[in-house]
Computed example of a mutant assay.
Amino acid sequence: MKTWYVMLAIAAGAVLPIQVGVNSTLRHGIGSPIVAALISFGVGTVCLLAYALAARAEWPTAQMLAKLPMWAWIGGVVGAFYVATAILVAPKLGAANLVCLTIAAQLFMSLLLDHYGLIGFAQHGINVARIVGALLLIAGTVMIVKY
């Protein structure tokens, strides 16, 4: 693995609980988890647009968009579900519990996606080492959530 990508993945993971805390504060300030998620996505959209314009990103053609599979369009829906759910759940569970549960769910879904090579991922079969690693993560999750 390239060090840069590993560091970037770690940084992305590290900012998720920060995002949850910031969005939760936004929710408490305005009173609505859905409106807080909408504001969060609006700010993110403006930032991504500014970056795309500054980087002179190439925009897709209509033909490129038409060739995409239908499931390629649900990324925003999934992101909105996660952000809205995190805003709603974080105050009840706390940052550590929320992150543990979401990471455990991400790992198991990732194992399935890799095993079957779904939605554009290369196929990487489930093996004993991956199962043991997943079980250790579950054990850690149970310890953090329960205690």
Rank of each mutant, 00 (worst) to 15 (best):
T25P: 04
L26Y: 12
L26F: 07
R27C: 06
R27G: 05
G29L: 08
G31Q: 09
P33I: 15
I34D: 09
V35H: 14
I39V: 13
I39L: 05
F41Q: 08
G44I: 07
T45L: 15
T45G: 13
T45R: 13
C47T: 13
C47I: 15
L48C: 14
A50H: 11
A50D: 12
Y51W: 10
A54V: 12
A54D: 06
A55N: 14
A55R: 15
R56K: 12
A57F: 03
E58R: 13
E58D: 15
E58K: 15
W59E: 04
T61R: 06
A62F: 09
A62T: 14
A62M: 09
Q63H: 14
L65N: 02
A66R: 09
L68Y: 01
L68V: 03
L68E: 10
P69D: 04
P69A: 00
M70D: 13
W71H: 12
A72H: 08
W73Y: 13
I74V: 15
I74N: 10
I74F: 15
G75I: 11
G75H: 02
G76R: 06
G76Q: 12
V78N: 09
G79C: 07
A80E: 02
A80K: 06
A84E: 05
T85V: 07
I87W: 08
I87S: 01
L88G: 07
L88F: 07
L88W: 12
V89N: 00
V89F: 03
V89P: 06
V89Q: 06
A90T: 12
L93V: 14
A95Q: 13
A96G: 02
A96N: 11
N97M: 10
N97W: 08
L98R: 03
L98C: 03
C100R: 08
C100N: 03
T102I: 11
T102R: 04
I103K: 07
A104P: 02
A105K: 05
Q106T: 13
Q106F: 03
M109S: 15
M109H: 04
S110K: 01
L111K: 09
H115N: 00
I119L: 11
I119F: 13
G120M: 05
A122C: 05
A122T: 07
Q123P: 05
G125I: 04
V128S: 11
V128N: 03
R130C: 01
I131L: 02
L136G: 00
L137M: 10
I138T: 00
I138E: 03
T141Y: 00
V142I: 10
I144E: 01
